[in-house]
Design a protein around this nucleic acid. Structure first.
Lengths: 163, 163
DNA sequence: GGGATCATGTAACGAGTTACATGATTTG
DNA sequence: CAAATCATGTAACTCGTTACATGATCCC
């Protein structure tokens, strides 16, 4: 369901686009929000076209298919945004390592947390490159505050483990 | 893979347990870290037993099967904790709504963010009930800081939208 | 011409969800 | 004795990943 919404939202926000374009967006701006590769996106667009949520507007060079959102698609998107209570499904390998930290020796645990911290630092660097306005600006801010919280946790935990 | 690790980690941390016990743990302490229902856990334990990572220690009343982690399971768990670089796969409906916020009218957007804030408040209340020590204490702290960051984002965004 | 990038797809597999099914034991 | 909880499972389905396959166009 959410993959559909993400695709509809992108088409609504950036206008007509190909599956390839949409896949690129997932890789970059949508990366910290929802993940999907082209192998999931292409078939989904076909299904959505069958359901009348999007339509192929034109076919360009190299078999490029430009999809547009239909009025029905816009309605579906709007309803979801306004009415859907977001489900919280956490599946974080980082949190899992944090959970199991007490099973390790102190020095091993320190090494693990340092690696986690490095991961957060890398994500921070990526997020800081995001534009400060346009669609996705609010999501980028949310992502930033999450990563900063993670970094603070890492520092705190390291201090705790070293004591 | 991570489901296995979570199960091994729980068996290592709390000692021998049944699938049912493990499912309960997922529902409560592991809830903000990794999610899995009994329909996923039971078959996975069977596979893990076939792979020699866990073993059925005894069978109790009502067909209750007590699983123990084997030395091989402990090894597998330890290796993953120490060597595995956690993958970051974000799939957050909340972040998706945040991403698409600019597609809504201001008053609709405000309502959406208020609902998101309520969600964070509920999670905060749950996390604050978690014990402050034992396995999972570090993960609980990480979860708390994530939720607090989310709450701060919601407040900030509401202020921004109302301006 | 050759490598990078554009552009689309399929197939097999693994992970996760929902619905269904069954029966034992405990507690009010 | 009825309802709640304990306890395990299967089947069908959807979602997501990995690997494979193909060909066009652009730029050096």
């Amino acid at each position: 369901m959410s993959l559909r919404i993400a695709l509809l939202g992108l088409l609504e926000a950036i206008g007509p686009a190909s599956g390839y374009d949409l896949a690129k967006k997932f890789e970059h701006s949508l990366n910290h929000v929802w993940q999907a590769g082209h192998t999931q996106i292409y078939p989904e667009l076909v299904k959505m076209a069958a359901d009348g949520l999007v339509a192929v507007e034109s076919e360009g060079a190299r078999g490029r298919k430009i999809y547009t959102i239909t009025p029905e698609g816009t309605r579906e998107l709007h309803t979801w945004l306004v009415e859907h209570q977001p489900a919280v499904t956490v599946r974080s390998e980082t949190a899992l390592q944090a959970f199991l930290l007490p099973l390790l020796d102190t020095d091993e645990a320190i090494a693990v947390v340092e690696r986690i911290r490095t991961g957060f630092e890398e994500r921070l660097a990526v997020l800081q490159c995001h534009p400060k306005d346009g669609v996705g600006a609010y999501a980028a801010k949310l992502g930033l505050s999450h990563v900063r919280a993670g970094l603070a946790w890492a520092e705190e935990t390291l201090a705790d483990l070293r004591r």
